[in-house]
Design a protein around this nucleic acid. Structure first.
Lengths: 123, 123
DNA sequence: GCGCACCATCGATGGCTATCGATGTGTCGG
DNA sequence: CCGACACATCGATAGCCATCGATGGTGCGC
């Protein structure tokens, strides 16, 4: 557990590079950001979100089963993941469950990708 | 932005919603996009990329082991993942391996997030 | 009410992932 | 030439994830 001070020691080639200020990103921030990416880390979910963005409306599970080639439980599983991540909003209308994009969260994911300096907004 | 007429769903309860044109996104595109997100779907990798973006330089593995609290093989494992995804570039300099951001790919990830219509090189 | 359609949940399973210790490869300094 | 260092790879393991069939709940039409 050397604190790795990397100050001005001998340093002909003693230190390999810049210190990289340890944790620029807080632990919880990193976990939260990774959770967003994790929700999109699946081809089917990517297609669901993309389709929802191009269709600019709502979809129900029944309209996704065939195009995705997945079983209905699996589609429900993916929708739940996306809702939990905040990317989708669920709205029960009659016997159908309509899902629509949460534009604010999608924008937030895009903002995270700026990376230079976290704007750190509070949604 | 294509307004996309969005049919008026006059049907009482026959069809639940719009057809959602099957695969707006090609299969390989969806897989490729998901791969990028998958590379960022880990808190440690998020912190590596973020730190690399703020530090605006190169890092070697030895400078990441302590801040991340991971073993050296695990850090190497994560770096490999990021390189395979194209997000990082590896450069061997002496006995150190320097990693730097691949800005083009990071931008591409951000572009994918526009989602409305894939601006991609393929129209 | 009865059945049917839509959907979520559950339980099981095969596959992938992150993590580590041990080991191998290459480089530098003495 | 030899030890020390930086790093990657390997083998093993525990945990998570996507997928499905079966099941249960709820709203709608008859």
């Amino acid at each position: 557990m050397t604190p790795r001070a990397l100050p001005v020691l001998e340093q002909p080639a003693a230190a390999c590079c810049a210190p990289l200020g340890a944790d620029e990103l807080s632990d919880t921030d990193a976990v939260a950001t990774a959770s967003l990416f994790k929700a999109l880390a699946d081809p089917h979910r990517v297609r669901i979100v993309n389709g929802l963005a191009t269709a600019r409306g709502s979809v129900c599970v029944c309209d996704l089963v065939d195009p995705l080639g997945l079983s209905q439980p699996t589609v429900s599983f993916h929708m739940k993941k996306l809702v939990e991540a905040g990317l989708l909003v669920r709205e029960q209308r009659g016997k159908w469950a309509y899902y629509s994009l949460n534009a604010a969260v999608v924008d937030r994911v895009r903002d995270v990708l700026h990376l230079d300096r976290r704007p750190e907004e509070t949604p």
